[in-house]
Each structure stands twice: as C-alpha cells, then as structure tokens.
C-alpha cells in the first residue's frame, strides 16, 4: 500500500511541476518582451488582452497552426528528435531541484522535491550535457550552412563553459560536503547562504550559466545578425516553439539551481515552513529578471572573445577559487 501512495505522490508532483513550469515558460516570453520593451523605451506587446496578458496564448495558437516545413535534404529522424531532446533535458533538470521544505498534506509528510537523489548535482550536470545534443543536432540536421555553423559554435561553446561551470560550483561542494541538493539547502539554514562564503563562485556560475543556455552576451549559436538565427534556422511551427520552450525552461532551471546552491534555497524569514517555497520562487524570479535585464544591457561578444573568456579567464579563476577555498578550510 505504501508503494501505491508513493507512486501517486510522485505522479502528482510531476504533473504539478510540469504544468506550473509550462505556464511560467509561456508568461516568461511575455515578461521578457515587456521588460526588454521597457529597457528600449517602447511598449512591448499590448494588443491582446489587458496589457497584452493573453499574448502567450495567442502566440501558442499561432505557432500550433503554422505550416510545418521539413527541408528536403534534411536528416528527418534527427531533425524531429532534436527539439525533443532539447526540451526533455531542460524539463528533466527540475526532477532534483528542492522547491521547499517538507509539508503536510492529508497527514502525509511530502518533500517538495520530485526525486531526492544523493548525487543530485551530478545528475544536473549529466542531464545538462545531454541537452546540448538538441541544439547541435538541430543545427546539423537541417542541411543549412548557417545552421551547421550555429551547431558547431554551440558545441564548442558548451564544452568550454561546462568545464568552468563545473569548477565554479566545486567551492559550494567543499563547504557543504554533499552532492544532495536538499542537504545543501539544509546546510544554508539560518542565513548562512553560500553566496556569502563563495561570492566569486556565484559570479562565475552566473556567467558560465548564461553561456550554457546561450543567452545574449554569449548567444553565438543563434547570433541573428550573422547566422540568421543559427541552429534553429530551418525549424518552423511547433518544433521551433519546442526549442524556445526548452530554452526558457533551461533558463528557469539554471536560476533555480543558482538559488539552491548559493542563495539558500527555500530559507528566508517571516514565512512558516509550509509556505517556504514562496521564498524559492521569489529568489528564482529575481535571478530570472537579472537574466532578462542583462540581455537588454550587454552587446553580443565576438566568438574568439567568448572562447578566450572561457578558457583563459573563467577557468583559471574558478581553479583559484577552489584552491583558496581549500586553503581557508584547512587553516580555519
């Protein structure tokens, strides 16, 4: 009987996280357009519904009914699979993220994590590295030279920044002594947020994460000006939308992971444990806002500058961060 309850609980959690996430992704597109519009002193979408609030729904319907084109010389199976890989990987990241403290529902203690894995952080890196195939294959399979260049850039950039990303969270691991994300959050209770002990690691993580999700200062794979949208150039209709949903879901995931690792997860004052997930949502929201804000602020870097920044600046700095963290831990 316990097993049945467990299965029902897991299924409910999966459905809840999935539906909330899809809704947030839809409205994140609107938020991004609105905020970018504000930064660039224009209105942004404001035609559909009050303040343009129904714009994501209109976009969804439009994209769903668009004609779908698959290029004649495309590699059809991979062309179809690529967007799926992209979004499945982005959604799978949420399986290990702890959204809040334990809560009581119908007399059962429920943890607000879908899967409380011992190797949670490694799972995230593993899934994230698989998700890159979506972009790389999507660019290659369309039989388009711009797509191919986008795919190659994506592969090179992601390999480079994955190294620095992994090293930047190593300091947190050394302090917490565990890879379990729930335990990492528990260790930050009482205001001992990791960002206070690892401020540089937090900055490295944010920079590398922006490069991992191909966001604006690092959006080489789809650089509109030179590659005409890069890897997704041949995609249309729902497949194009899937790439976009995957990208936004990945953005939220990256911010949620930053919240978990550096900003104390669900910990915060004023709220009872059963409502602690609100703090998690607020912190993640602030980081998401930061990602949109910087997109409106920074120009795109050149490709060689991105590579140089990754290998010659971020990697040595992340290594130095590990070294000094270890030194201080031994001395203190």
């Amino acid at each position: 009987m316990e097993l049945v309850y467990f299965l029902i609980e897991a299924a409910v959690k999966v459905v809840a996280v999935f539906s909330v996430l899809m809704l947030v992704v839809a409205y994140l597109t609107l938020a991004e357009r609105k905020i970018l519009g504000h930064i660039q002193v224009r209105y942004g979408p404001n035609r559909v519904g009050p303040f343009g609030l129904f714009q994501p729904i209109a976009d969804g319907i439009k994209v769903f009914f668009k004609e779908e084109v698959i290029p004649a010389k495309a590699d059809k199976p991979l062309f179809v699979i690529a967007p799926m890989i992209s979004i499945v990987a982005a959604l799978s990241l949420f399986a290990v993220i702890p959204f809040g403290d334990k809560i009581e529902i119908f007399g059962r203690t429920v943890t607000l994590t879908i899967a409380d894995l011992d190797i949670g952080l490694l799972y995230i890196f593993g899934i994230a590295s698989l998700g890159e195939y979506g972009i790389v294959l999507g660019g290659w399979s369309g039989y388009n030279k711009y797509g191919l260049i986008g795919a190659l850039r994506a592969a090179a950039q992601m390999i480079s920044y994955e190294v620095a990303l992994g090293l930047s969270v190593m300091g947190v691991l050394m302090i917490s002594g565990t890879l379990n994300l729930v335990e990492i959050v528990h260790k930050q209770a009482g205001g001992h947020w990791n960002v206070l002990y690892q401020p540089f690691a937090f900055i490295f993580y944010l920079v590398c994460a922006l490069a991992e999700i191909n966001r604006t200062p690092f959006d080489m794979p789809e650089a509109d000006a030179e590659l005409a949208c890069g890897f997704n150039i041949e995609y249309s209709s729902m497949k194009f939308a899937l790439f976009f949903m995957g990208e936004y879901a990945h953005l939220i995931a990256v911010c949620a992971i930053a919240t978990t690792l550096f900003l104390g997860g669900w910990h915060g004052p004023f709220l009872p444990p059963s409502l602690s997930w609100i703090w998690f949502v607020v912190k993640t929201g602030i980081l998401v806002y930061f990602c949109i804000w910087e997109r409106g602020t920074f120009p795109r870097l050149r490709y060689d500058q991105i590579m140089k920044l990754g290998w010659k600046v971020l990697l040595p700095l992340a290594l130095a961060n590990i070294f000094f963290t270890g030194l201080i831990m031994v001395l203190v």
Binding site: F125, S129, V136
Partner: peptide, 28 residues
C-alpha cells in the same frame, strides 16, 4: 552504483561523444 552511472552519462555520453560529433561535423 549511481555514481558510476552518472559519470558514464557525463563523461562518455555527454563530453566525449560531443567532441566526436563536433569533429564529424567539422570534417563534414
């Protein structure tokens, strides 16, 4: 063995195969 499993995904399925695919695409 969860650890070996996830390392297999990260190192082989993720990193090494990405390099292999990168080279195949580069040489077309």
């Amino acid at each position: 063995s969860q650890f070996i499993a996830i390392i297999q995904v990260m190192v082989y399925a993720g990193a090494i195969m990405m390099l292999v695919i990168f080279v195949i695409m580069l040489l077309s």
